[in-house]
């Protein structure tokens, strides 16, 4: 039997989808409204799944207080109420699409020391969401 513990977190942030590799016209065509030079924002939901043996003295895969504190420090504090393009160095060279946000959050959370990160799922709105499970599904993330 294998168990995954999942927890949902929220942050709100703004972004602009604009690629330096594309011309102005091409950016407008590809990204549409999301290319608005002033940016726009979303209420993001981040669903984090971790796995590991259940410690029978606590009944837990990981103490939620530890997971919450780690996610707060690695994701919520740096992302919440920020303009992602300008305030996160990772998005100076990468367009902050939710695909790239999802990968960035996965990479940050893969360092969680108390359980294995299985999956990060990011909802940009209630209608679209993205999932990332690492470089190859089932691979060990060290």
């Amino acid at each position: 039997m294998k168990l995954h513990l999942s927890r949902r977190y929220r942050f709100s942030a703004s972004h602009r989808l604009h690629s330096e590799q594309l011309g102005e016209e091409e950016n407008r065509r590809v990204y549409g409204k999301c290319n608005n030079p002033y940016g726009h924002g979303h209420n993001y939901v981040v669903e984090v799944a971790v796995s590991g043996p259940v410690d029978q003295s606590t009944g837990m895969i990981a103490n939620l207080a530890d997971l919450d504190a780690f996610v707060e420090g690695e994701v919520i504090e740096p992302f919440d109420h920020k303009y992602l393009n300008e305030e996160l160095t990772e998005f100076r060279d990468h367009v902050p699409t939710t695909e790239n946000i999802c990968i960035e959050i996965f990479n940050r959370l893969s360092r969680f020391p108390r359980a294995r990160l299985e999956r990060v799922r990011v909802e940009e709105t209630g209608l679209n969401s993205f999932e990332y499970t690492g470089e190859s599904a089932g691979a060990t993330h060290e």
Binding site: M1, K2, L3, H4, A49, S51, L64, E118, T133
Partner: peptide, 16 residues
């Protein structure tokens, strides 16, 4: 709504 556990059998791959 913000906390859940998935349980899989050994053979189910647990892909999420």
């Amino acid at each position: 709504p913000d906390l859940f556990v998935d349980c899989y059998g050994e053979g189910n791959g647990a892909s999420g």
